[in-house]
Every structure is written in C-alpha cells, then in structure tokens.
Nucleic acid binder design. Structure first.
Length: 687
DNA sequence: GTAGGGTTAG
C-alpha cells in the first residue's frame, strides 16, 4: 500500500499532500489523510467538498459542508459556502440550496460578487428563479457573469421572456455580452421562436469576433432550427471550422425537427465516418428522431446498432424506442424492452415507466398497464394522465373516473390533458351525467380553462349518450369556434342514433371545415342509406367523387411471432387465404344456426358498390381475426389492429368467434379497444 | 487558491 504520510507535519504541508492526491484523482486517500489531520482548517474542508462535488458525489459534499458549519472552532468563509453551492448546483438539490442561501445571508456574504454569482447559478440549476432574484437584488456590483447566470436561470426555469428582458436590461446597464452570454440566451430565442432577435445576436457574434465559437454556433443552429429556418441552421453548421460532438448532435436534431429525416440520417452517417466519438445524446437524438418521424423500424434498428457498439441505453433511449413500439404495436419488442428496464433498474424512472404503461395500453394489454402503474413508486401528473387515458381507450370509464378521484386525493394536479382523458372515458362508457359534472368542475374546482378539445369531448359525451339535441345546442352555445372534432362527434352520434336531420347539418359543416376527409362523406352516406334515402345518399357519394376524394382503404393487421400480417378488404394474398375464407363461411353457418343474422346495414359502409355482395365476409378485420384463430398455438388471446372504425357486422361476427373458439379477441380500431370474450364486448356493443 | 455556456425525453 501507500507509504504512510506522517500527520504531525505542519498543516500547510498536509494540505499539499491532500491536493496532490486530489489532483491525481485519488479522493479516497485524500479523505484518509484529511481524517487524520488533527485540526484541518476551512481551506482543507473546502478542497474536499469541491472534490466530492466534481466527482458527482454531491450528497457527500453537502454532508461535509454541514459538518464544517457545526465545528465550533472553524468560521466558514465564503469559499466553503461557494463549494457547497456548486455541489447543490450539480445535484439540483433545492432544499439544501435554500439552506446555503440562508447561510450566505447569516454570514453576511450576500453582497459578495463571487459567491453571489455562484448562488445565482445554483438557483438556476435548481430551477428556483425566486432565489436567484433575491441574490441578484442583493448584489451591489454585477458583472457579465452575474447577468449571464441570471439570464440562464430564467431560461432553465422555462421563463424565456423574463430571460430576454434581463438580457436587454444588461445592455442598458452598459454590460456587453460575451460568448457565454449569447449561448445562454439563444435557447430563449429558440423557445419563443424569435427569429429576429436570434439573427441580431448572430450578427453581433460575428462582429465581435465570436464567429467561430463552438458554443455560440451550436446554439445558433438550434435557434434557426426552432424557427423553422433549417437552411440558415445548415449554413451555420457548415461554416463551423471545428464542430464537436454536440454540434453534430444539434444539426442532426435540427434536421429531424424540420422533418428532414434523410439528411439527418446522412449527417449521422457522416459523423460516424469522420470518426467523431458518438455519445449517448447522439444515439438518443437519432433514435428519438426516427421514432418521432414515423420511422419506428429504423429506430429499433438503430437501437440494435447502439447495443452492438457497446453503448448502454439510458432512460431517454428507452422512452424514445418505446414510443416506436407503441406506434408499430410491436408488443413483443416492447416486452423485451420492459425486461431491459427491469434488469437495468429503470423501474423507478417516471418517464420510462410511463412510456411503458402507455405502450402496454396501446398494444391492448390494459391489465399489464394498470399493474405497472400500481407499482410505480411515485406518480406525477403525466403518469396519472397516461393511466386515465389508457382506461378510457379501453372503454373503462368508471375506472378512469375513480383513478381521477385518486389522483386528486394524492395531491397531483389535474391539467388540461387529464380532463380530455376522463371526458373521452365518459363518452365511450355512456356516462353522460358524470361527464357533465366533471366538465362543470374543471374551471371552478381545478382552475383549468376548457379548450376546444374539451368542448368536442362534451359533444361526444352527449351525442353518444343519445342526447343529440343537447349535443347540438351545446355546439351552438360553446364559446370557442366548434372544431371538426366537435361536428364529427355529432355526426358519429347521428349515425348511431339514426338522426338524419342533425346528420345533414353536421356533415355540411364538416364538408366546409375539412372537405378532404373521406370519413365524413361515408358517415353521411351511411346515415342516408339507413333511412332509405337512396337518391340523397348517391348524391353524397357523387359529391365525394366529384371532389376527387378517395376512401382510405380499410386495413387490419395481426402479429404472429414478431411478424406483422396485413390484410385489406377481400385480401387473397395471404398464403392461408383458402383456409381463412373457409373458416369464415363455417362461422357464418354456425351463426345462422345460433340465430345470428348478418347486419346488412353495414355492408354499405364500404363505398365500393361492386363489392357490396361479397364484402360482408371480406372486411379486413374478419380476415385478420380468422388468420389469428387458425394460427393459435396454445395462446388464449388474439390482438388485431385496424386503421378505421370496426364495422357492425364484423363486431358481431368477431364476438361470436371469440365465444365459439373460446379465446379472448382484442380489436383496436381507429378510436378505441374492443375486448371480446364469452359473447360480450367491453364496449357494450356501443361504439 | 475562487464563478457562467450549446444537443436528446412522457
């Protein structure tokens, strides 16, 4: 081991040794020596505190600081308080930050420039602008660092406007910004999409010799990208003489946020080719970029590459890639990632688990979703919102409501998304009075102003509840402009309750607001056909044709052993097509024997008249279910996904199949989930 | 023997 250093040396020599150990990174040995020194002075304490905080061991640093404060024989100086402030800044520990601020006031260091700057920075990192304002106010002299830290505190606290005000005031006070000021203030321009100020800052940086500053330029790339000015972002990046890994990451994200996936992926490739060391952010940027831009397969592929390269995913990687699984309904891959989360102890990460809760719910496994949520050690508003939305999607309105009550009791604050979640739950479960009472309590009890989305949800609640006149009056009286969603909800309700008059009104409004949406023409057509108004129906159809609008083809898919099998109407391309149709014919016979007759009203939902006869047995969801049944290998559940709403005849057929074969069948249509088992559907035959 | 900055997330 190490030769023992005699501790009876004079203090300043011991300090030399402590510093030597710290400089070589041997914090353990420095601590040992420190513990043996009989009367360490405040400087030795400071050295150790700084060392711990630099090594990411803020807790230990703060413990030492508390200890030194309580030593009778030592008077804390501003440097030891400063070291403690840095430790708090590193860990974002607000409680201790406030304590340190109080100490600074007690010791009368509060007007010291050096310490003041560090305290402002600390409060900025702890996201507590009130603290920073108080420190700032106490400073008699403020330098460029004071102002810079003050501005970036506002930026960190999500107050970009205040940041820009402080930046202006700085100028009025005759302080000229430096490169650090500019790179701190540019994110405020990004957030506010302040292109003009951003360009002004760009010009200033060039005039003042900061044209090749990496930090400023990376912040500029981000600013231009946020202001949708990708060309300018590109230009800044290409003019950089030495882009570092962060600069590359920024330009990649910039391309993705502007929808330029090919360029983003090219840049990623280029970066790899140039031998830039990819960091975790590089991988996360490109993975989340793909996930956000409708490229889930690529996101998963990149995750594989990442693992191959030996880089460990973190919570952010997991969250992004789970979003991909959700969009592809890649339930099995999602399960693998779930296992990964458990193995790597990410289960206490709110964001990752919330994404997992959503993934399971969207993949049809509501039970797992609920179970995971129950086991979460802490829950924030987003987590509660997610579980409420999950239950609403699955038609569990009562459950959504009780979760909401639990949420309020737990002290989490409901926000606008919470109410959209509950109200949609109420509409899917025909809970009209509950919906009305929640809606009325939004502003009064929770101070959430209902927006257009909430109003549309309420139209849906009333409409699906069969209270069509009320729904229509609600639309006419709402203080916001009724959106397509509101009229669409009314139109849908008119289809269910066969109300031709209101259906016409709603459809005509929709033809104005969103003339290109085929769904509205189809709904009106169905309503008219249901009322046997053939001529009017065919003119609705003609209107659609004249406008050149094509119905979106119905498409269903089912997963089998990590492969996705897709079916369209009348699909005969599957290798098992023969068996599928045979099975469906058999089922039709069985249904007739059991006294179930096909619901012909729905045949017409398909606008392609030529196929009417046939199409009854041909809908994609039936084909997918049949394929799933024929390939059941001991599994008790089939999950089918459809891009449009499920049709009524398919609904009753699938219900029958589930009972006949003795399996659970879960169908997700474009709006919600249907759980079929034992001759019942979770939607109560109402959708 | 003392301070501050740019990228990724539900």
């Amino acid at each position: 081991m190490h030769p023992k250093v005699p501790t009876n040396l004079p203090l300043h020599l011991n300090i030399q040794f402590i510093k030597k150990y710290l400089n070589s990174g041997d914090i353990v040995r420095a601590r040992q020596l420190f513990d043996e020194v009989p009367h360490p002075d405040v400087y030795s304490w400071t050295l150790l505190i700084s060392a711990y905080s630099k090594n990411g061991r803020s807790e230990e640093a703060i413990k030492l600081y508390t200890e030194v404060k309580n030593r009778r024989k030592i008077d804390p100086d501003k440097f030891v308080v400063l070291a403690a402030a840095k430790a708090c800044a590193a860990s974002g520990d607000l409680a201790n930050a406030k304590e340190i601020h109080r100490d600074a006031l007690n010791y009368r260091f509060s007007s010291d420039l050096l310490l003041g700057n560090a305290l402002i920075d600390m409060f900025g990192k702890c996201k507590h602008f009130e603290g920073a304002e108080s420190v700032f106010g106490n400073l008699g002299i403020r330098d460029v660092i004071t102002w810079t830290s003050f501005c970036s505190c506002y930026v960190n606290c999500g107050l970009p406007r205040k940041a820009l005000c402080a930046f202006r005031e700085m100028g009025f006070n005759g302080i000229s910004p430096n490169a650090m000021t500019l790179s701190s203030i540019l994110p405020a321009c990004s957030e506010l999409k302040c292109l003009n100020l951003g360009r002004e800052i760009h010009g200033f940086s060039i005039k003042n010799g900061m044209g090749d500053n990496m930090f400023v330029n990376s912040a500029l790339v981000d600013m231009y990208s946020s202001c949708s000015s990708i060309k300018r972002a590109e230009l800044v990046f290409h003019n950089m003489s030495h882009p570092d890994v962060v600069s590359w990451n920024v330009i990649i994200s910039a391309y993705f946020t502007n929808g330029e996936c090919v360029k983003a992926l090219n840049k990623f490739q280029q970066m790899t080719n140039k031998g830039v060391n990819l960091d975790i952010v590089s991988w996360n940027s490109v993975i989340s970029g793909c996930a956000d831009n409708g490229k889930p397969q690529e996101a998963l592929e990149l995750l594989r590459n990442m693992l191959q390269s030996g880089r460990k995913p973190n919570q952010i990687t997991i969250t992004s890639v789970l979003a991909s699984c959700t969009s592809l309904e890649l339930w099995r891959v999602g399960k693998e990632i779930h296992a990964y989360i458990v193995r790597n102890r990410f289960l206490d990460d709110l964001t990752a688990v919330t994404a997992l809760v959503l993934m399971y719910a969207k993949s049809g496994d509501l039970e797992m979703s609920n179970q995971l949520f129950r086991n979460m050690p802490s829950k924030d508003t987003v987590a509660w919102n997610t579980i409420i939305i999950a239950n609403s999607m699955h038609g569990q309105g009562e459950k959504s409501m009780s979760l909401f009550n639990e949420m309020v009791e737990s002290g989490a604050k409901p926000n606008s998304v919470t109410f959209t979640g509950i109200l949609s739950g109420c509409s899917h479960s025909r809970m009209v009075d509950e919906g009305l009472s929640v809606f009325n309590s939004m502003k009064k009890e929770y101070n959430v102003e209902p927006d257009s989305e909430h109003y549309s949800c309420m139209v849906d609640v009333l409409g699906r509840g069969g209270r069509l006149i009320e729904a229509y009056n609600f639309i006419r009286q709402m203080p916001v402009e009724p959106s397509a969603a509101a009229w669409g909800a009314l139109l849908g309700a008119c289809r269910v309750y066969k109300n031709v008059d209101l259906g016409r009104i709603a459809a005509n409004r929709l033809f104005e607001i969103e003339p290109g949406n085929p769904g509205n023409y189809v709904l009106l057509f169905n309503i008219l056909v249901g009322a046997k108004l053939w001529e009017e129906a065919s003119s609705a159809r003609k209107l659609m044709r004249d406008r050149g609008i094509r119905k979106i083809p119905g498409c269903s898919w089912v997963r089998l052993k990590n492969r996705v099998y897709t079916f369209v109407v009348g699909d005969k391309n599957n290798e098992m097509s023969g068996e599928i149709y045979e099975f469906l014919n058999e089922i039709r016979k069985e249904m007739k024997l059991a006294g179930c007759y096909p619901d012909t009203g729905f045949v017409l939902q398909d606008l392609d008249g030529e196929e009417q006869e046939d199409s009854l047995c041909n809908h994609s969801e039936k084909l997918a279910v049949a394929f799933g049944v024929l390939n059941l290998r001991g599994e008790s559940c089939i999950r089918v996904f459809k891009n449009l709403r499920i049709c009524g005849d398919c609904h009753s057929t699938i219900n029958f199949v589930a009972k006949f074969v003795g399996v659970q069948i879960i169908v997700r249509d474009s709006l919600r989930f249907h759980h079929f088992a034992d001759g019942l559907c979770s939607c109560g035959d109402f959708w």
